[in-house]
Amino acid sequence: MAGEIPDLNAQERTGTGKGAARQARRAGMVPGIVFGGEKDPLPIQVPFNDLFKRLKAGRFKATLFNLKVDGHEDVRVICRDVQRDVVKDLPTHVDFMRLRRTSKVALYIPVEFTNEAASPGIKKGGVLTVVRPEVELVVTASDIPEKIVVDLTGLEVGDVVTISDVTLPAGTKPTIDRDFTICNISAPSSLRSAGDEDEDEAADVEATEVETEEAEGTEE
């Protein structure tokens, strides 16, 4: 199970419609709604500063939250939409979906690299180049893994670890179909040949692809 699902504090919002939404915004809140889970929709409002900070941190739509609303049981939710002001680009409304324990959701899971001392390539002065410090996986809401472990034992200079080389937690799968790179062991700069530089360029291309995927798949 993942270490700790972040809490998101909100208040139940009285009244609906444009008038109630404007009143919430004047009070420094962002109106929103919680839906799904075979329950009635729940109008809420989230403190603007808290929401804005989380949006700036990134991957808001790929983060599972423990939503806390006074008078209601805590519930796991994931953001499904953030509406923004067309001029100021500030959040004006947010939609959350309740998740059942059996719900499948795409989340970024951190990667942990172990046994560097058992890597002959690193012992020779090679450098661990991390292409993906975290990987987006489809997981079950009730069983979110804390991390993915990459064992560096036996890796030589020039070796590359792809997602197919990693034993993923049971019940999970990557959101990307292709066999993408997690890390590689590159030669130290003093020993790099033209061939090594070509490998580094390949790693740079992979890193660029990561940025492109994140830009296309996660807006916040």
Rank of each mutant, 00 (worst) to 15 (best):
D85G: 05
T162A: 10
I144D: 04
V161F: 04
S142L: 13
K123P: 02
P110K: 07
D95G: 07
V131H: 00
L128I: 13
T153C: 12
V111M: 10
H72T: 09
E73D: 15
I78W: 03
P110E: 11
D95V: 14
K124I: 02
R76I: 11
R84V: 12
D165W: 03
V160F: 06
R98P: 00
T162R: 13
F96M: 04
I109F: 11
D74K: 13
V166W: 01
R98D: 07
G126T: 05
G71E: 05
T167C: 11
K147N: 13
L90N: 13
E116P: 00
L168W: 05
P145N: 13
L107P: 01
V77G: 01
P145L: 02
G158E: 02
E112V: 14
Y108D: 13
R76P: 02
T129V: 15
E136D: 12
D95S: 13
F113V: 05
G154P: 02
D151N: 15
T167S: 14
I109Q: 03
V139R: 00
G121N: 02
A118W: 05
D81Y: 05
R80S: 14
I122D: 02
P120Q: 09
F96N: 00
G121V: 10
D95P: 10
M97I: 14
T129K: 10
H72C: 13
V111I: 11
V149E: 09
P120L: 03
L128V: 09
R101E: 15
T129I: 14
R76C: 07
V82C: 09
D165Y: 04
D165I: 07
V130W: 02
L155Y: 04
M97E: 08
N115T: 04
T140S: 15
P145I: 05
V161K: 01
D159S: 15
A117G: 07
D74S: 10
V161P: 00
S142I: 12
G125F: 08
V77M: 04
L152F: 02
T114S: 13
H93A: 15
L128A: 10
A141S: 15
V160P: 00
I109L: 11
V130F: 03
D74L: 02
L107T: 00
D74V: 11
V160Q: 04
C79R: 00
R98G: 04
S119E: 01
I163N: 09
V160Y: 04
V130P: 01
I148T: 09
G126N: 02
E73F: 12
G125Q: 11
V135Q: 01
T167G: 12
V130Q: 01
Q83L: 01
L152K: 03
T162I: 06
D151F: 10
T153W: 08
S142P: 01
P133G: 11
G154Q: 13
A118F: 12
F113D: 05
I109G: 06
D85N: 09
I78F: 09
D74I: 06
D159Y: 09
L137V: 15
K124F: 12
A118V: 05
V111E: 07
G125Y: 09
E156H: 12
D143T: 08
E146C: 06
N115D: 11
L107R: 00
D95C: 10
K124E: 15
V75P: 00
A118I: 04
L168Q: 09
R98F: 08
S103I: 11
D89P: 03
G71Y: 10
Y108E: 12
D74F: 05
F113C: 08
V131P: 02
L137G: 02
T102V: 13
E116R: 05
L137Q: 05
Q83Y: 03
H93S: 07
D143C: 12
